[in-house]
């Protein structure tokens, strides 16, 4: 069993296709949708955790790539610069997964990459540009 967390960006002509269904049916993969969004430009964005046999996972990824779906691995997506963070907590209520969280005793903010689904909601909330998208 291998597991992969990825951000999938769908071109608008594919948004209406049941891609996830085929991943499950034809490639035997388990899909856990962490976040889904269709932007005003009608681009679809799906943050998913995909697990399955290594071979089938690779085949599934190839299938996505053939459909012109952009695949980005999650872990390198968002960077939190601890030295720029002033621990104000302006970002805290915006994070849906507690990837950015606050220790209420020390009032110190910290970032857990594993929990981050790269939704980018926190980015504009930070007045010090302490959270960055790394491409």
């Amino acid at each position: 069993m291998t597991k992969k967390r990825v951000v999938l960006t769908f071109p608008h002509e594919i948004v209406s296709q049941p891609v996830v269904y085929y991943l499950v049916k034809d490639y035997n993969l388990m899909i856990n949708i962490l976040r889904a969004r269709v932007t005003p430009q009608e681009q679809g964005r799906l943050v998913v955790e995909i697990s399955g046999k290594k071979k089938e996972l690779e085949a599934g990824m190839n299938y996505l790539a053939e459909l012109n779906i952009d695949i980005q691995s999650l872990t390198r997506d968002i960077k939190w610069h601890e030295n720029k963070c002033v621990h104000c907590t302006a970002c805290i209520p915006h994070c849906p997964t507690d990837a950015i969280s606050l220790d209420r005793d020390t009032m110190k903010v910290s970032f857990d990459k594993q929990k981050c689904i790269a939704c980018e909601l926190c980015i504009p909330t930070c007045p010090y540009q302490a959270i960055e998208i790394v491409i």
Partner: peptide, 24 residues
């Protein structure tokens, strides 16, 4: 500072612009 307040019966998450940690 505990993270939630009740407004019109709804639990609302709080965030600050001031830094308690830096003030400390």
């Amino acid at each position: 500072r505990d993270g939630y307040i009740e407004i019109e019966g709804k639990q609302v998450p709080t965030g600050a612009l001031s830094s308690y940690k830096k003030a400390r």
